Amino acid sequence: MATIGLDKLFYSKITEDADGNETYATPVSLAKAMSAELSVELAEATLYADDGAAEIVKEFQSGTLTLGIDDIGASVAGDLTGATIDKNHVLISTSEDGGTPVAIGFRAKKANGKYRYFWLYRVKFGIPATNLTTKGESIEFSTPSIEGTVLRRNKVDGLGKHPWKAEVSEDDTGVSATVIKNWYDDVYEPTYTTTGTTE
């Protein structure tokens, strides 16, 4: 179903243990969302046998997330890009900056009034783009955008796989109201039954 809105943009800082496994902090609001564009790159291979394609493998390699936001505050910019805030509360960006990955959560309103919820488990952002224009005869808003690379997370789920995205629509059959209610309390962790199917 088509979506007609976007809101509740959150991020969660990541800490990693010695093996690189992620632990997520309590999610906090990033900014007011204007747009989110997600593109995905797949690694693919085709095995040819008997003069034809015998097997085709397509796996997630990485993605690009471009966020259009109303504003990015100094502390959020620091968390996402590695910039620092000096003692005068001025945000300083240096050539050595390199932000640490974060998890990104948001929701999109569907045409039926229900929402589709997302968590991207590991996104590494670059420096926000700034567009400025002089004031003319009509009012024109200039807003920042920020682009990040979406990666799979290091920590495996209950099936021994490395998830990169969690997505659910609140009106899907079998979706617990608790999952939707608690979506922004923590970064969603996949749960499975012992047979490998979802609970």
Rank of each mutant, 00 (worst) to 15 (best):
Y11A: 03
P27S: 07
G160D: 08
Y184F: 14
S95D: 11
T198S: 08
L9W: 12
S138D: 10
E22M: 07
G196C: 05
N131K: 04
A103C: 11
P128N: 06
Y188I: 11
T64N: 09
D7Y: 14
S176H: 02
G82A: 04
L67N: 00
F10P: 11
Y24H: 09
D7W: 15
L159M: 10
G113V: 01
I146P: 04
D17P: 01
D157W: 09
G68I: 08
I92P: 00
V102Y: 07
E96F: 12
W164F: 15
T84W: 07
D171K: 06
R153Y: 10
G196N: 00
L38S: 09
G82F: 09
T100L: 10
G126N: 10
N21Q: 08
A25V: 05
A25L: 14
S138F: 11
G113Y: 04
K124Y: 02
A83M: 03
T100D: 14
K32A: 13
D7I: 11
F60S: 07
A108K: 08
T23W: 09
A108P: 01
N88M: 02
A33S: 03
A129F: 01
D157L: 09
T100P: 10
A25T: 08
A83G: 04
G5T: 07
T195I: 13
D186A: 15
L120Q: 02
L38D: 06
D79W: 07
V150H: 01
L65G: 00
E189Q: 13
G113C: 03
T193S: 02
A177R: 13
Y188D: 09
S138G: 15
Y188L: 10
V168T: 05
R122S: 10
P27M: 03
K161C: 08
D70I: 15
G52M: 14
V57D: 05
G5V: 02
G52R: 15
Y11G: 00
G99P: 06
S142K: 11
